[in-house]
Nucleic acid binder design. Structure first.
Lengths: 355, 355
DNA sequence: CCCGGCGCTGACAACGTTGTCCAGGGGCTA
DNA sequence: TAGCCCCTGGACAACGTTGTCAGCGCCGGG
């Protein structure tokens, strides 16, 4: 790490915080009343062009910028919404956050977001901090299962929309992807290609989507009249280590699974690695993952996935939020967005002949 | 999209905004003075346990939550920082944003972020909106080249750190990756493997990192005494269409390039696709990309890259920002973080024998 | 017994803005 | 020329919080 200090020695005169010019200062300098400055700043009518010019000059001369804190206090609306999600660094949430931001921007609002790191306490802490800031609304991808702490806030008028997972113990709007249906499709797809021993590698069963995907897996299996062996299902944290162990166990069992269904993108990627590292079997293992990911099509074989559009999820939630803010009433709604099966090869591999 | 309304008809009584209880209400209900409530809320000493209990009861009974807008106005500090970047949905920026958030959190601050969409006007608009909110500091990945509009804000005490690209026409802290050195390494690596005709596919030359990478390319070529043909360099928007055309032209030329250096991760991915779609040449084209990306190692061959740690970039910038906020003075600093060459196969492919 | 001091509490102003309301002046009409 | 209205500008309160300061009991020491 190198450190270069530019040659110029011009130091900006560091006025301290709070020493910023206020409308009062601008008014004094322009020789007008306080309210006139306010009018100019907000583009309100009723100011002579000449007066306006004087005020504008004073503003630029002093480097005045309206203090939105005061404005917010006075007006009661912050024109900002909060987004609480698990981890911004996750490629699933980046587009979601961006989509929410775009909708907010269209409504003239800023977005404040926070990562809960899948920790319910941290989620609550963040949400309440946002409420204290008086955000107009909240979009929450919940980490916890009990959101009763939100009841006073919602009663006080903070619009709230849950995304990806429903709220716990409180009635609220929610926008979800069809985890159950998508999983059912995925597993049915594998079954249609001849598989009978299918493994499921999922997230912690406490997470709503993980539970739904498990349910979809079971539904598809039982619909096809197939039994599910305990050893074919592994739920838990999705760190590579655990997934690696679980997948290896399924593949090395006496009666190994011939296909794998990965419960989310992190799991899928780990499984791809595991399969790539194993000595190539006579017949490759089929794989289908929940969540699409970049480059899935460039691997060989391409990885078949159940795609959900996270940006669409965010957009839908934000739209609903602003409709609520615009006064839309009615009971809490639950919107479920469809998923889409994208076959790319890995999910269409047939099982060994003597399956 | 299905829409299910839950059966319960319990409507929460929607108090309107501004109808939230204030400390005054709490004080009245608890039969104490306003300031005593403030003391309890802020955990200040000097309150009898009995009084405190009464106040706490009133708080929960009324569902009171401190209004931070008022607090901010009074105290002058917002305990929030702004992050302006190009696109939160880009996998390069997600980890960066998350890293900044973590540092902010450690300092008790919230993070407000906005996407400039690589549009200078939108960048300015966002930055000034954040300044109006009186964020304590700003982390900016600049889209524009003229940041003089920030001068009054910086003079007023808004700490500002630029990331990934330096500020334009204003003295400010900056944290950069070593684009020049990294590119030099990349091209030298290709040369070391025998290549002499190397193509460079870069971003718009107006973008600082793109210009630096081009400079590194030229430096490595000239250091090796190799000429650079105009047709080997293509700069412009990094949309797949343009990159595809440019790459194809270089590969189909009379004297085709035998290796490609891709100027960023988007370009690299597009090039990988292009190469995958072409009829396999007798000798595969070597490729090295700037920026690492997930799954680069799982492609065949694995894609060699110049890796820069975007999270580290964010962390470093945020650290510097908070050091400034804690009063660290001195001239603006420019920190340059090193890059790292990760060979994975695609960059080590030799050129055709008769090169 | 009185007084100083301490522990607790509350009244009040201030933060910077916006909404309300009123005043003054100029132009237009009768 | 008088009267009226509109147009412009300003004084003032309020938003909800925190910092300052003063008051009120009560206790212990002189």
């Amino acid at each position: 790490m190198t450190d270069t200090a530019p040659g110029t020695a011009s130091r900006t005169p560091t006025r301290r915080y709070g020493t910023r010019p206020t409308m009062k200062d601008v008014a004094a300098r322009a020789g007008v009343g306080l309210k006139t400055v306010s009018r100019v700043v907000n583009g309100e009518p009723g100011v002579t062009p000449d007066t306006e010019r004087r005020v504008q000059e004073a503003i630029t001369a002093l480097g005045f910028r309206r203090n939105d804190s005061a404005r917010i206090l006075r007006k009661g609306r912050t024109a900002s919404i909060g987004l609480v999600l698990e981890d911004l660094a996750d490629p699933f949430y980046g587009p979601l956050s961006r989509a929410v931001e775009e909708v907010a921007r269209a409504h003239g609002a800023l977005l404040i977001n926070g990562s809960s790191a899948e920790d319910p306490e941290r989620e609550q802490e963040l949400v309440l901090a946002l409420c204290a800031r008086r955000v107009d609304g909240l979009v929450i991808i919940p980490a916890g299962h009990d959101h009763r702490y939100l009841a006073p806030e919602m009663a006080a008028g903070v619009a709230t929309v849950f995304v990806d997972r429903p709220a716990g113990r409180v009635e609220a709007d929610a926008v979800l992807a069809d985890s159950f249906g998508g999983s059912q499709d995925a597993v049915a797809h594998l079954i249609a290609h001849g598989h009978r021993r299918i493994g499921f590698l999922g997230d912690l069963p406490g997470i709503h989507t993980a539970a739904e995907r498990l349910r979809g897996y079971h539904a598809a299996m039982s619909e096809a009249g197939l039994p599910v062996h305990d050893a074919w299902v592994s739920l838990g944290p999705t760190d590579p280590e655990r997934v690696r162990t679980a997948a290896t166990a399924m593949l090395d069992a006496a009666e190994p699974v011939t296909a794998l269904f990965a419960g989310n993108n992190r799991v899928t990627v780990t499984v791809v690695r595991v399969l790539a590292e194993r000595p190539a079997p006579a017949v490759p293992v089929a794989l289908i993952g929940f969540d699409d990911f970049e480059l899935a099509d460039l691997l060989s074989p391409g990885i078949s996935v159940i795609a959900q559009d996270s940006a669409q999820l965010g957009r839908t939630a934000a739209d609903l939020l602003f409709r609520r803010l615009d006064g839309a009433g009615g009971d809490p709604r639950r919107l479920v967005l469809p998923t889409r099966l994208i076959p790319r090869g890995s999910g269409e591999l047939p099982p060994p002949a003597a399956s």
